[in-house]
């Protein structure tokens, strides 16, 4: 199973800053291994962030995003103590969801 994400969420003056680190190989499908065989593409294709169940960010990703991606964004309206959940899904259908509390 994929490793947990590291998520931080901090509210200041009504704006919540969210920082997310994801553990993923993000293989482009363009590299070859030592024996010359193509390493199959394996990458996060969809990222969703929700605040109290409501989507605040939705993104479609491809192979141009680096291994172990870092994502930072801001949104308005969150309060300290409320929950942020982040879900990624990759091109092999694997998925992972983690959540954190806004502080």
């Amino acid at each position: 199973m994929a490793d947990p994400m590291r998520i931080r969420a901090a509210e200041r003056d009504g704006v919540v800053n969210v920082k997310i680190l994801m553990s993923h190989e993000m293989e482009t499908g363009q590299r070859k291994d030592a024996s010359g065989k193509i390493v199959p593409a394996h990458f996060i294709s969809k990222v969703t962030a929700t605040h109290q169940g409501k989507t605040v960010l939705s993104a479609q990703w491809g192979t141009a995003v680096a291994k172990n991606p870092f994502l930072e964004f801001n949104f308005k309206g969150g309060k300290k103590g409320e929950k942020i959940a982040v879900t990624w899904e990759d091109n092999k259908g694997e998925t992972r969801t983690d959540e954190t509390t806004i502080n």
Partner: peptide
């Protein structure tokens, strides 16, 4: 093929 250095910045 070396990995693309700048890619994470797109995400960021």
């Amino acid at each position: 093929i070396p990995r693309r250095m700048a890619a994470t910045m797109l995400a960021a």
